[in-house]
Simulated scan of single mutants.
Amino acid sequence: PLDLTLLHTLLAVPDHEDGRELVSVAREVSATLPQLVISVAAREGVPLGSGSTDELARARTRAARYEQWRAAVAEAAPHGRVVKGPSLAARYPQDVVRPVGDLDLVLPDEAELWAAARTLTAGHDAEPYELTLVTDPQGALHVLLTVAWPSPDPLLEQELRVELSTAAFYGDLGALPLRPALPARQGLADLLSVVEERVQRPFHAKDAVDVLMLLHTGELADTGAVTDTLDAFRLTPEAHELLTLVHAAAPHPTLEALVSRTGPLAEDENRRRAATGARPEPAGVPERLASGFPVWGMLLDTGTGRCPTDRLRLDPGPSGTLAHTPVGSFLLVAGELVDPAEHAAAAASLASLDAGTHA
């Protein structure tokens, strides 16, 4: 059961400690994890004060705004799929809040991605926030665009963000390559998305609860299909780690079977990754794109009309490579530090392009 006892176990908080300590430890793990703890406490009848009541209200308001934007995107890009977020939240008890961060949407191609982006920027006042471009092992270009809105409470909450991507799993772009597709079953897509988080950070209590909710709704019952999918997407080492963690906290025969099945496959995958070895990482934008390494876009302006409405256009030049998209133009860069002169030259190149267009 999803209760305070389970959360004490997952957060390694002794049973004799009260709810305040549980919330405090949760906040050290993740800024949004207290939302889960507080909502479970409220479900068990723990009285809430103004602070915890407000925290839940803000989380629910945030989730409602994401649902509004998801519905708007669904009209413009009908083949987009939600992963994690609202999809997993729907499996939680109705009165429990799954921590709300951002909204992740996977689109089948650039046309639908830019349709979704235009809907959110032109129709819902989002601003382009981050752009990442990377080619997959087959040489196809993939786009990851984040659009954002200002935080409703900047001292307490991060900005609201929707991530739009033509690829589902980016891996580490080294031994674990980009894998663009999602499995057809939504439960498996959500499980893989949770497991892939391990590439970015350690697992924590929310990931374990996500797995338990998938278990509770029967999504993991076919252990053979689950294992085969994890293996096909090369995520057995991460899955074995997470499933072992969850089974230790909440033992279950299905979890035991999955831990047993993924163990040998995880060893095989780790050997496969070790044999791949490190690849030399090019410094230049064109070379990185050609080699399957990511490049990032620094927003120059939100002007439109410099490219088709359904795809971006790359514009290599002496001042750097520009990416003109249906929601704005970006200077593509290979790292965090950008020469101010390069940025100024790119802005001048953009102004020159616009002057020539309107001449």
Score class of each variant (00 low, 15 high):
316 P>H: 09
340 P>D: 01
284 G>D: 15
270 N>T: 09
266 A>M: 05
331 L>Y: 09
257 A>C: 00
276 T>D: 12
286 P>N: 06
297 G>Y: 12
290 A>Q: 14
289 L>N: 04
310 D>N: 03
292 G>L: 15
308 P>A: 00
262 T>D: 03
252 H>D: 05
285 V>K: 08
305 G>L: 15
233 F>R: 03
313 R>T: 08
334 A>E: 02
312 L>H: 07
256 E>F: 07
264 P>R: 07
281 E>K: 14
265 L>R: 07
323 A>C: 10
303 G>A: 13
244 T>Y: 04
253 P>V: 00
265 L>F: 05
259 V>L: 01
256 E>D: 00
304 T>E: 14
329 S>H: 01
277 G>Q: 00
254 T>W: 14
297 G>Q: 12
233 F>T: 02
240 H>V: 04
316 P>C: 02
319 S>F: 11
339 D>I: 00
283 A>Q: 15
295 V>I: 13
288 R>H: 13
302 T>N: 05
332 L>Y: 00
246 V>I: 07
239 A>H: 04
254 T>H: 14
294 P>Q: 11
335 G>M: 04
291 S>F: 15
298 M>T: 15
286 P>S: 11
309 T>S: 09
315 D>T: 15
262 T>A: 02
275 A>I: 09
271 R>G: 07
324 H>Y: 10
250 A>E: 14
318 P>V: 14
248 A>P: 05
325 T>G: 01
339 D>M: 01
331 L>N: 03
314 L>Y: 10
232 A>Q: 05
242 L>Y: 03
297 G>A: 15
240 H>P: 04
293 F>W: 14
275 A>V: 03
340 P>R: 11
281 E>G: 00
263 G>C: 06
244 T>G: 06
254 T>K: 14
287 E>D: 13
324 H>W: 14
298 M>Y: 09
272 R>D: 04
243 L>H: 13
242 L>W: 06
262 T>R: 06
260 S>W: 10
239 A>I: 03
306 R>C: 01
295 V>A: 12
260 S>M: 08
285 V>Y: 05
328 G>I: 12
331 L>D: 03
231 D>T: 06
322 L>T: 02
333 V>A: 02
309 T>H: 06
311 R>H: 02
234 R>V: 01
235 L>N: 00
268 D>Q: 12
311 R>G: 05
315 D>C: 14
306 R>A: 02
301 D>M: 11
231 D>C: 07
340 P>W: 15
321 T>E: 13
305 G>S: 00
296 W>A: 10
246 V>A: 09
232 A>R: 11
245 L>R: 15
258 L>E: 00
